[in-house]
Computed example of a mutant assay.
Amino acid sequence: MGRITAFVALGDSFTEGLEDPAEQGYRGWADRLAEHIEARDPGLRYANLAVRGRLIQQIVREQVPLAVASGADLVSLCGGGNDIIRPGARVEQVSRWLEEGVRRIRESGAQVLLFTGFDLRHVPVMRLAHTKIEQYNLHIHDIARRHDTLLVDLWPMPIFRDRRAWSEDRLHLSSDGHRRVALRAAEVIGVPVDDDWRSPYPYVPQQGWTLNRRDDLHWARVHLAPWITRRFNGRSSGDEVDPKRPELIPIYPDARRSG
């Protein structure tokens, strides 16, 4: 992709950047990608409208119109994961909403950056949604072809089968996981970077069955139970949360660059 002057990121917690702490709030792969773009195309304007917990219909209705009105060159759109893991969710309907969002953005003249879902067979509970994620990914590939978009295919990337790419909650990426997604996304859009997302993690011995089960129980108590409770009560982690970067402004308005 040629010079990028304005980048808008849309989606849910993945794009908001949860579990990648910054001085204020979260950083995440989208912020990191914007920094890579800025290094090549100084003066980049960037907005991040993603909000944790958002469903695909909310993303298309609330965020897509703002991205279209912004006149951005590049719009990333990643959503549907919160829908897919819900019981009774229909992959075909989620895919139709995603394609509607892509169509609107492409009609505005912007390029779209799509993402497939991760292969989560190694994650307890989440592995139950494996087949639905795989089906949704097939739709995403088709949408990308039909609308001539860019696509970051996360599913086959082996680095994300390592626990160190994930935060303690096993649902969101770690800081290093976000870093690697940003590197892969930069590669897809043709922005040069110094690091390689493929770099292997240092070897560590596998812990035994007992320690694994203890970790699983801790995770279920601290992270899974609250998630189930919110779903049961019809609440979302994104209730009363606003986009962290709602305006399309220079990424470094005060001329300072982060590391």
Score class of each variant (00 low, 15 high):
Leu74Asp: 09
Gly109Pro: 10
Arg161Glu: 13
Leu66Thr: 14
Thr116His: 08
Arg161Val: 07
Tyr136Asp: 05
Thr116Pro: 13
His130Tyr: 15
His122Lys: 13
Asp20Cys: 09
Pro124Ile: 10
Trp97Phe: 10
Val125Asp: 04
Ala185His: 01
Val68Ser: 10
Thr116Tyr: 06
Val152Ser: 00
Arg96His: 11
Leu211Trp: 08
Arg184Cys: 01
Val51Trp: 08
Pro202Ser: 00
Tyr26Gln: 04
Thr131Gln: 14
Gly238Val: 03
Val51Ser: 06
Thr210Ile: 14
Arg121Cys: 14
Arg3Ala: 13
Arg163Pro: 00
Glu92Asp: 15
Asn82Lys: 08
Arg231His: 08
Arg103Lys: 09
Leu151Tyr: 06
Leu128Asn: 05
Pro202Lys: 00
Asp254His: 12
Pro158Tyr: 06
Asp153Arg: 05
Leu18Tyr: 09
Trp155Asn: 02
Gly11Asp: 00
Arg127Met: 10
Asp176Ala: 00
Ala34Cys: 04
Ala72Met: 03
Arg27Trp: 08
Tyr252Ser: 06
Ile133Phe: 15
Gly190Phe: 02
Ala186Pro: 12
Leu33Ile: 03
Val193Gly: 08
Gln57Val: 10
Glu107Asn: 09
Arg179Trp: 07
Ile251His: 03
Leu113His: 10
His122Ala: 08
Asp148Asn: 15
Met1Lys: 05
Ile105Tyr: 06
Arg180His: 04
Gln111Tyr: 07
Asp216Val: 04
Arg164Val: 12
Leu248Trp: 12
Ile59Val: 15
Ile133Ala: 07
Trp209Ala: 04
Arg163Ala: 08
Asp216Pro: 00
Gln111Lys: 14
